[in-house]
Amino acid sequence: MSEPLLKVEGLKVHFPVRGGWLGGQTGTVKAVDGFDIEIGRGETVALVGESGCGKSTAGNAILGLVEASGGRIVFEGQDLLSLDRSERARLRRDMQVIFQDPVSALNPKLTIEHSVGEPLIIQGVERKTRKARVAELLRIVGLNPEQARRYPNELSGGQRQRVVIARSLATSPKLIVCDEAVSALDVSIRSQILNLLMRLQTEFGFSYLFISHDLSVVRHIADRVVVMYLGTIAEDGPADAVFDRPVHPYTEALLSAIPLPDPKAQRAREPMVLQGDLPSPIDPPKGCPFVTRCPISEVRCKDVRPVLAPTGEGTRAACFVRNPAARPKDVPA
């Protein structure tokens, strides 16, 4: 296999918790605590999990929007964390991001033309070329180039998200991070935007890191899926395997919790309803992070943290009840 576009190893993002009398550090939130991912060229890798699992923080660390506390982020063969600021910034030009809310992503006082052309202004592209490029970008995302002179409030939510997509394409990126990019859209608009994202990828060959809590959307768009829980990876692998033959009980619970839009199928299911809430990332369980909610946990799960290891299904899962290979080497069976 050729060199992946992005390779992240052992990524950690820890935030200090301050408090107490003198505002000193009283603890650490391990928002991301050991995270590996590889994204090939033209590939879509999805990051799924519930709120607080660290999926957006992992995405933000890759984008350089939060500081990584450890690990390696190798993009185009270079470790971003070992480069100086300007080098890092130059490489990160090939990364773009699309957030959930197209309203706050666009400056209400700027025309669509200005917003879409902004990355080009920064690159010093001359006005006439820029204008032509913006018109082209608007056409590519299915907008009328005449809308270039409009303001965001004159557009619908779906149109605004198209503008955001057009802007992210302006610098011809190699990786686009979509952080809940379709979550705020109405159902009828969401499928339009998903179709657009898939079409653009076929056309331009860039990669997506697709962060989403919506598993039916992820199932549709992703080549590979990474399931996160409490800052670590519970399971990852090809989308087919993860969705059809989940190994980790958390993946199974997550899939089982999505109500199917088919009353017969939905009511025939015996859903696996998890008890309780996510534990606090300030004080995560010592052993398996999922142990407090896991329906199949054993005594050893409380003390020993499983490692992410290959399963017989072509995936990797961090659960030693289901996957014996997940037992750390220094722990006897």
Partner: peptide, 23 residues
Amino acid sequence: LLQTIPRMTGARKEELKAIEGTV
């Protein structure tokens, strides 16, 4: 509306049925 929803079964990566225009 029912056709535009991505399903947990069936084809992946295919073009989804969409409703034209905006609400």
